[in-house]
Amino acid sequence: MSVTGIALDDWVAQGKVFRYRGHQIRWWEAGAGEPLLLIHGFPSGSWDWHYLWQALAERYRVIALDMIGFAFSDKPQHYPYSLLDQADLQQALMASLDIAEYHVLAHDYGDSVAQELLARHEQGAGFLRSLCFLNGGLFPETHHPVLLQKLLMSPIGSLIGRLYSRERMARTFGKVFGPQTQPDDRELDAFWRMIEFNRGPRVMHLLIRYIAERRVNRDRWLAAMQRTRVPLRVIDGAVDPVSGAHMVGRYRQLIPNPDTVLLPHIGHYPQVEAPEQVLQHYLAFRDQRVSVTARATTPA
């Protein structure tokens, strides 16, 4: 399956803006059909999905936003950043579009936001149609933070953020991408533009609180995943040192009838490193698993 990337300048030009809690949030929409919400990871933004965007828009109504504190949205320095608030933000956008039910494809930090959405769904809201996770810290016990994350969580986190540079970012990304699928200079420049826009490094130590939030919410999110009837799939880059094959092994231990796909030689950003494979396995999930489940639960 072929995919076509989108240059960052073109991506930004296609964005729209809405306001959330007094702040500007950049968001994107394309295609028609069943709504599919894409949720990006830390520390980048929704451009992470650019290789998949057009192919997905040929089949679905795809929607994505840069979460507050990320990429081309506002990055206030005095804000109560939290995963729960980011879930509120996702729901606020979907409500503004009058979308009551939707599918979710998430990555990294976005996985945790999606887990919160699933927990809310299971509490009776009933708005999710399916959920697919790419590499992310679904379980705190399997998440292996990189050095940058550890430093941002430390008492000198604010200083680390202010000293963050493109060179440091490139070194970190080089360690979490697969050895055969390293980002090129163009991609690194785009990642850095997302991070440094609106003085983003100055809030990284605030955003990193999500790692502690994962521990607090772990049991509630796990219970939702274990009891849900919402179709779930994990598509995971196997050699990711942060949340690779070891995370999938834990997922298979904890989740009933686990639906998982491991991508050999791929690291933490499978939608960038192997977009054709991600697209293939995501479409198969929708066609084979989600559609079958929908037919089985539709009254005759």
Rank of each mutant, 00 (worst) to 15 (best):
A245L: 09
S2W: 01
L56A: 03
T297P: 00
A223K: 15
G161W: 12
A32M: 06
T293L: 01
I25R: 03
A95I: 03
E141G: 05
R162D: 14
Y102L: 02
E34G: 06
V242M: 15
P201H: 12
Y282F: 15
E167T: 14
E101M: 04
M153S: 15
M247F: 07
P270D: 01
T293H: 01
P258C: 08
E167R: 14
G136W: 10
L159Y: 14
I99F: 07
I266G: 08
W49F: 13
Q280M: 07
E276Y: 02
F139H: 12
N135H: 11
G157C: 11
Q149T: 14
Q182I: 00
G157E: 09
L222E: 14
D98F: 05
A32E: 15
M225I: 06
H50N: 14
G157H: 11
A32N: 12
R193N: 02
V230L: 09
V62E: 06
M67F: 04
E116W: 08
A7Y: 01
V176C: 04
H107I: 00
D74L: 06
G126Q: 12
A284L: 03
G33A: 02
P264H: 04
L163D: 05
E58Y: 00
F18E: 15
G15R: 02
V146W: 07
Q91M: 07
L52S: 03
R171Q: 09
R227D: 08
L97R: 13
V234C: 12
A57D: 05
Y210G: 14
D66Y: 02
G161L: 13
V248S: 12
A245T: 07
L148W: 11
E29A: 05
D74H: 10
I63K: 00
K16T: 13
G41I: 05
I255L: 10
A238T: 07
M153P: 05
G5K: 00
V17M: 13
W221L: 09
E141C: 09
T4D: 02
L232H: 11
V203Y: 07
S154P: 12
M169W: 03
K16P: 12
R215W: 11
P256C: 08
P201V: 11
D185G: 10
L147C: 02
R59W: 01
L207N: 12
S82C: 05
V146A: 13
P76L: 12
T293C: 04
V12E: 13
R286M: 11
D88Y: 05
L128P: 07
R218Y: 15
G31R: 05
G136H: 10
L206K: 15
E196M: 04
Y269S: 04
Q14R: 02
I99A: 07
N198L: 06
P140S: 15
Y60W: 04
L262N: 07
L84D: 14
P264A: 01
I68L: 15
C132Y: 03
E187N: 05
Y20G: 01
P140A: 15
F197E: 14
R26E: 06
D48A: 02
L38P: 05
D184G: 12
V17Y: 09
V203Q: 08
S165A: 06
